[in-house]
Amino acid sequence: MTDIAYNNAVDQYADGVYRFIVKNIHQEEDARDIVQTAFEKLWVNRDTVDPLKIKSYLFTIAYHQMIDHIRKVKKYTTTDIYETTTIDPVYQPQHELRQTILKAIHELNPTQKSLILLKDYEGYNYQEIGEIMNLSESQVKVYIHRARLQLKEKLSHLQKASA
């Protein structure tokens, strides 16, 4: 890979990788560090990375960096930031449906959240998501379906509460 191809990859994928990480961990500076690391690794391994799989390579590196980051954060925090909490329906107006969904996604566990983000934001298929997250295709399918049904339950609960 030439530096031109690498710089094109920066233009094409830096935003997506950053969005994926920042939506997961909700910490901009840490997300920047993870993106930086992912592109550094791409640069170091530019001769061995398949030019057709640059995007998934970046997401794979970023995802694993993020998992490491979450583990480190968990060590130093008493409460789990991804601990499932119930959304208080009283303070969630109906017109803020999108915010409600995002909050509900944030309350999913890290694996489910990453699956949903890779699927909805990046449009990866189950097989590609499996490669990035080191899961089988059937595992991806089961986990995503479980996450969707969980989100559906939360939303229907909210709609009933607000009605």
Binding site: Y18, V22, V35, L97, R98, R148
Partner: peptide
């Protein structure tokens, strides 16, 4: 179920 899906938003690095 379609309402549960999130539309991509642009976040710039």
């Amino acid at each position: 179920l379609q309402g549960v899906k999130i539309n991509p938003e642009h976040i710039e690095y």
